[in-house]
Design a protein around this nucleic acid. Structure first.
Lengths: 152, 152
DNA sequence: TGACTCATGTCAGCATTCTGACATAGGTTC
DNA sequence: GAACCTATGTCAGAATGCTGACATGAGTCA
């Protein structure tokens, strides 16, 4: 059963566990967002705009962890359906600052409540200390992956 | 800057951080697997088969966190290209046990080494204690999300 | 000023993954 | 045995996200 250093032991791999946790979270979010007709990326975009109004397409893409092309497609749909607005011309450069419409804000409210309940559920088994631990270790993992990326 | 209980504060959300970490890991893995002509799911499938030979399509799907339809498409390609084999007829029921071919095993070797280096990089900033913490908190999050899912 | 680099918005095409649907095998219950 | 439920493999179509490519605006540097 042991791996003797060959391959990646899935039973003990933190990478595999991270993927599993992320997958479970995504599934849980999709489950509560589906009745609202919203995907996870869709929700992420609205939430980002609520907290940081005026974000550009590229900034939203980075915040939602998708490419700017993907976010562009989503924004066009959201704009068409009246959830967000963008000026016809860029005030400066090519950057188009995006904002939620009242409709977008209303739509986000329900979704945000649903997502908060999922997050609360996820953290139900962790006390304060453990939540701090989780926060710290996740941040370190992210930093390690990013730093070495630049270095290489 | 505070959120006053409204919305999900992305700066302090463990869910958002989890997604960020998972995204960083996936990007790092894609980066090292791309030169080998392999996607993350592709690699996951081979790695699962190396450690648990004879897994069925559905079992592989669960292990790689995709649907069985998605895994089926991948398996057909892997079979066509000679990385895995499946019996023409099911020995029992409809389950087709899948196995790596020598070619599949060779292909996995390089990929596995690359992925191991990524995982090592990710954990570089964590000592033994912190890795144990990470393992524990991630497992609890997964369990909380799954348990409540069944309960509901 | 001109050349260079970088980031952005956007279009097009492709890859990946998903949902929906169907037939079938095995186990359970009556 | 019959009815039922569950799991599986598979096909088809749709949604989602990605890579490649291009034009443009801003900043840097000589």
């Amino acid at each position: 059963m042991s791996q003797e250093g060959v391959g990646v032991d899935l039973e003990t791999s933190l990478g595999y566990l991270l993927k599993e946790a992320s997958s479970a979270l995504r599934a849980a979010m999709e489950e509560v967002l589906r009745p609202l007709g919203m995907s996870v990326t869709h929700y992420s975009c609205l939430e980002l705009l609520a907290q940081r109004p005026g974000l550009s397409n590229s900034e939203l893409a980075r915040g939602a962890f998708v490419t700017r092309q993907t976010m562009n497609v989503l924004l066009q749909a959201l704009e068409r359906d009246g959830y967000v607005t963008r000026p016809a011309e860029a005030p400066v450069g090519k950057v188009l600052p995006t904002r939620l419409t009242p409709r977008g804000r209303r739509s986000l409210e329900k979704a945000s409540a649903a997502v908060r309940s999922v997050e609360a559920r996820m953290l139900a088994g962790l006390n304060e200390t453990e939540q701090s631990e989780a926060f710290r270790v996740l941040q370190r993992m992210i930093r390690s992956l990013r730093d070495d990326d630049k270095g290489a």
